[in-house]
Every structure is written in structure tokens, then in C-alpha cells.
């Protein structure tokens, strides 16, 4: 908007609703601030939305056809491309990627927990998700 003024800028009106979905998805799904620490992981049901949404993307076959497949090649997002836990030290891992990796693990734990909880029909304790934040 104002950033481009009246010039012949690209997408002068901002991204809006017309922006390429792939451009949006690769940013909002894969990038953006990840909250580390103990704040968010304190209500299992709610935290599950985040988890579900990300797992959903990775599990939808159609998504792959549409070209939403970057997690497959991103060690921080994909369980398939992911090296064994703790083996990321050697690679060019950014702090964010490391964080992603750690969150992935937590997500996995949470999901298992919730599945278990659903089976048990009893509220799952959140304690197991509060593992050491230190990598």
C-alpha cells in the first residue's frame, strides 16, 4: 500500500485476497514466530489445533498435488526427511529449524497423548509436554 506509493510497484495493493496461495502458505505455514517456552503448552485441547493443522497439511494427498510439499524436504518439518533425533548438530541448522524440530517432537508427543486420552476418555495430563526446552 503506502510502501509503494503511486509507483508502478508490484502488488501495490498488498497481498490481499488475490495473493498467490502458494506464496501465502509457504509463509504462514512454514514461517512466522514460533513461541518457545512453557506458555502455550498448557492446555492440551487448544494446543492441538496448531498440531492438527500442521499434520493435516502434511497428510493431505491433495496438498502434494497442489505443490504444497516443501515439508518433505525440510528436515525441520518432515518426519521422513528428518534425521535421527539429535543428529542435527552437523547440518546448517538455524535456530528456527532447531526450534521447529523440537516442536515437532512435542507435537508428536501431544498427538499420541491426545489419542490416548480419547481412548481413555480421561483428560490427558500436560506434564509430558513440558519437557526440557533446552535442545
Amino acid at each position: 500500500m503506502s510502501l509503494f506509493g503511486d509507483g508502478p510497484g508490484p502488488a501495490a495493493s498488498g497481498q490481499g485476497s488475490s495473493a498467490n496461495l502458494a506464496d501465502i502458505l509457504e509463509r504462514v505455514l512454514d514461517k512466522g514466530v514460533v513461541i518457545a517456552g512453557d506458555i502455550q503448552i498448557n492446555l492440551l485441547d487448544i494446543e492441538l489445533l496448531t498440531i492438527k493443522l500442521r499434520l493435516l497439511v502434511a497428510s493431505v494427498d491433495k496438498a502434494k498435488e497442489m505443490g504444497i510439499d516443501w515439508w518433505e524436504h525440510d528436515p525441520s518439518l518432515s518426519s521422513r526427511a528428518r534425521p535421527a533425533a539429535g543428529a542435527v548438530d552437523g547440518g546448517p541448522t538455524t535456530a528456527l529449524e532447531a526450534e521447529n524440530q523440537r516442536l515437532r517432537e512435542e507435537l508428536r508427543l501431544l498427538r499420541d497423548e491426545s489419542r490416548q486420552a480419547q481412548l481413555d476418555r480421561s483428560p490427558a495430563p500436560a506434564e509430558t509436554t513440558k519437557d526440557d526446552p533446552a535442545p
Binding site: R27, K31, G32, V33, Q40, L49, T50
Partner: peptide, 11 residues
């Protein structure tokens, strides 16, 4: 602004 990652939900 700092954009949050999608589906960041607080209780």
C-alpha cells in the same frame, strides 16, 4: 509486527 505462525492458539 512480528507475524505469528499459522494456528497459534492460546487457551
Amino acid at each position: 509486527v512480528l507475524p505469528m505462525r499459522i494456528a497459534t492458539v492460546h487457551p
